[in-house]
């Protein structure tokens, strides 16, 4: 292990020590070696830094295997999930996260688009529904609502069949 990395570990020594105290409560504390499942649980939330859109937990390359080992080492050192993710972001860039760090920006656009769409549709309904009523009111009932004036062609084969059945009875 590089000393560079150990330095960082020293900074969190206190935390690690605290974690060790509560060893029974935390999965990642120094104790038994972290299991593959614990490693994968974190790797799942990260993407392989060098391959195209491949989550780290399923990436088969040698490089990814090493990163999973890195997660294991960090877990064994008592690092928390957040710390491990932070390390990955600092060293390999934000693209290793499976979600953009700025959650607001990523969700704002689709939500706004949906709201605008819903608003336009709502206004559309208002516009489409009004004229019929207005016309009827203005012309004092002489102009029947369209739906009554002319039957709307239904493709409803069943309805026709049912009508026929009724007639036959």
């Amino acid at each position: 292990m590089s000393k560079n990395f150990l330095h960082k570990a020293q900074n969190t020594l206190l935390i690690a020590a605290l974690l060790a105290l509560f060893g029974t409560l935390t999965v990642s504390a120094q104790g038994p070696a972290p299991t593959d499942d614990e490693v994968n649980a974190i790797a799942k939330q990260l993407f392989c830094p060098v391959c195209e859109s491949t989550p780290l937990d399923v990436c088969p390359t040698e490089a990814c295997r090493q990163w999973r080992e890195l997660i294991r080492e960090m877990l064994a050192d008592g690092k928390s999930e957040a710390e491990i993710k932070q390390y990955f972001v600092e060293h390999f860039g934000a693209q290793v996260l499976n979600e953009p760090p700025n959650k607001f920006a990523s969700y704002a656009v689709p939500v706004a688009a949906f709201l605008i769409g819903a608003f336009l549709l709502f206004r559309g309904f208002q516009m489409w529904l009004k004229p019929v009523k207005a016309d009827t009111a203005l012309e004092g009932g002489s102009g029947l609502p369209e739906s009554e004036a002319k039957p709307i062609p239904q493709d409803d084969y069943i309805a026709r069949l049912e009508e026929e059945v009724k007639k036959q009875k």
Partner: peptide
């Protein structure tokens, strides 16, 4: 709306990299 979600998810990393220089991944959770 689903289309916009998809389109945004595809184009957002491009926008992010162009305007803030930050490379990001939009993955399954989004």
């Amino acid at each position: 709306s689903i289309l916009i979600v998809c389109f945004w998810g595809v184009i957002y990393p491009l926008i992010s990299e162009l305007f803030s220089g930050q490379k990001i991944t939009v993955g399954p959770p989004f």
